[in-house]
């Protein structure tokens, strides 16, 4: 079992504040920070202020999601911005927590040849690019194949 990253190092910055959390214990999993509507139960990512699926005026509450997912589709990006290491696999991951809930993320620990739409995935955290203005690694949520 791969040890998940537990926190940021000196030379790292997160892609955004508040979109993902590190595992809260050694054997735990990272999570995405979604928004849940108390009225209709819909979950979105990233978290909105108000629900887009119903008319409730109550602010969404934070909910941790995204530990597991299924590969909806992918592509191998061979021409990208210069601060990304090419090529990389970009994916749309379908999450089970709500209807029609998808997230885009890079795939890690995976060769293009072994990628299959429908394959089960698990969240992980890692570098997605370099921040050229500071020289630091940009850290974000990623997904990796679940291997039995």
């Amino acid at each position: 079992m791969k040890k998940e990253k537990m926190s940021l190092e000196e030379n790292e910055i997160p892609i955004r504040e508040g979109v993902f959390v590190f595992p809260d214990h050694e054997e735990g999993s990272p999570h995405l920070v979604g928004g849940k509507c108390k009225a209709c139960g819909d979950i979105c990512f990233p978290k909105r202020i108000l629900c887009d699926e119903c008319e409730s005026e109550e602010p969404l509450e934070e909910v941790l999601i995204g530990e597991k997912g299924v590969l909806n589709t992918y592509t191998v990006v061979r021409l990208g911005y210069p601060n990304f290491d090419l090529p990389y696999i970009m994916a749309i991951v379908t999450l089970p927590e709500s209807d029609d809930l998808q997230v885009v993320a890079q795939l890690e620990d995976c060769e293009p040849e072994e990628v299959r739409i429908g394959m089960p995935l698990a969240i992980t955290i890692g570098k997605i690019k370099t921040d050229f203005s500071t020289g630091k690694d940009v850290i974000a949520y990623k997904y990796r194949p679940v291997r039995d």
Binding site: I15, T73, Y74, T75, G80, F84, Y88, I92, V104, I117
Partner: peptide, 23 residues
């Protein structure tokens, strides 16, 4: 845009959709 920041450049958006269409 979070999606673009994650690495979804413009061709990737349509490549993602194309691969799903093929599937």
């Amino acid at each position: 845009n979070l999606m673009v920041d994650m690495g979804v450049v413009a061709p990737a958006i349509f490549a993602l959709m194309a691969n799903r269409h093929m599937e």
